[in-house]
Design a protein around this nucleic acid. Structure first.
Lengths: 245, 245
DNA sequence: CGATGGATTGAATCTAATCAAGGCGTGTGG
DNA sequence: CCACACGCCTTGATTAGATTCAATCCATCG
């Protein structure tokens, strides 16, 4: 994957989607010293209980954060696309309360926790942009709670597909585009509080009614509006396009 | 309830539990102009879609935040104790993505969004303290996702009782103390993604095994450690006592 | 070519939801 | 003061949705 503007460029654009950054702010972010590494699918980047020294930024690929019960059941609590910062809370909280793992082959830039923190303090616009990211993430957590707590399996699956479509497409600003889902059904199940078997059945059911069309993990949306309605999808919680001030 | 140090004092103490505030910071917070109001149980303070102009601080009583599906099913996404700020995300995001409601009779102080925001910007320690609160709240969201997504009904109920015990008792620093649960079983159900009927049965089941002892809504914990084990409760996610630096 | 990870499908089981009735306590109005 | 309504909780019977268990298939990869 080409990175015409350098590995951190997409992160900066994502921050700018919700907050104003001056040229100097942008330059300061891009000037952060980082180390770039490529990881295989399934690599654990942070483990619960760790005391992270670095902040990880996903340059390409997909990642998730998850927690486990003692019984070994896993709950994925968030999904991450390229350009997103994976470690926002570890910038300011010392002990990791969850795991961070790649979902695909991924390139990750790590910057020093203290350097980024210093930047957030000396440049209020950067601090503010990071704060907005944290708040939007929290809003997504709340919607996931509603999804898992109060919607049936079929709506849960559909809802996640809708969310992913919008999050992937914020640049193209055209939802309902087909996309390649970077999750196995096991991972979908762990994100939705279901079993893989049932996820398979629900995808089947959505496809049977032509609310989605599947080709392997490629998903298309011939009835985007109808799909959204069927799972009670209201994109407000993503706060896209909000709060540029 | 007497408020010997003024209505905002408890909020300041809560902020100080995780971040250092100077005397000047503390004074600046306590000097915020606010209006104090008492609300009946069940009052909606903020509605999804609102553009809040104020930030609400819970001075006494209990409150929750919740979202609803179109079908009218409710999911409570967080519970709040006195001294907590109910509106942290609305300080920086314009549109409310969920509702805020009192769970008991409650006194609420409202401060101007812009005044508090200005304070967070001019006094970095205050901004930092607020940020830590936001991050801990997000950590609780993640644990709730695990709880609702991956634990059975009995463990879910027990887990919420454990969390509440620790959050109530952080001052006394003695978990396992009996306490009065300020939630009806309907509200418990809405917080746990269950039905009220099933919550009733699970409380019964916990009481039958003497993991809890109930007297109305008063709950005691004769086997605190055993209860925690039974629901896989690990308090790390509350980040209590962490990050005073 | 066999091994592996992922997906699918069917059958049986189980957890939690639903439906329904009744109890308790409190507050209110006749 | 009593009757009644209402909110809240409990319990039983039944149903439904999701899990579990198991077999099979397919594609990919070493």
């Amino acid at each position: 994957m080409l990175e015409p503007h350098g590995p951190l460029h997409r992160m900066v654009s994502k921050l700018e989607a919700h907050a104003f950054l001056s040229d100097a702010d942008r330059a300061a972010l891009l000037a952060l010293p980082f180390t770039l590494r490529k990881f295989a699918r399934g690599t654990l980047l942070v483990r619960e209980g760790d005391l992270p020294e670095h902040c990880a930024i996903l340059v390409s690929g997909f990642a998730c954060r998850h927690k486990m019960t003692v019984a070994g059941e896993r709950q994925i609590v968030s999904l991450h696309l390229s350009g997103e910062m994976l470690d926002l809370q570890h910038l300011f909280l010392d002990i990791a309360d969850h795991n961070i793992q790649t979902l695909s082959e991924a390139t990750v830039a790590t910057v020093s926790r203290s350097a980024l923190r210093a930047l957030a303090e000396t440049r209020p616009a950067i601090g503010h942009a990071i704060l907005i990211s944290i708040l939007i993430e929290a809003s997504i957590f709340r919607e996931w709670l509603l999804n898992i707590g109060r919607r049936d399996a079929r709506a849960r699956v559909a809802h996640l597909l809708c969310e992913f479509a919008l999050r992937l497409d914020s640049r193209r600003m055209k939802a309902g585009q087909p996309y390649e889902l970077p999750l196995t059904q096991d991972e979908l199940a762990d994100a939705l509080g279901l079993t893989p078997v049932h996820v398979s059945r629900m995808l089947r059911s959505l496809a049977d009614e032509r609310l989605i069309v599947r080709d392997g993990r490629l998903v298309a949306f011939p009835q985007w509006e109808e799909l959204k309605r069927s799972c009670d999808f209201n994109e407000r919680y993503l706060h896209q396009g909000e709060q540029i001030a």
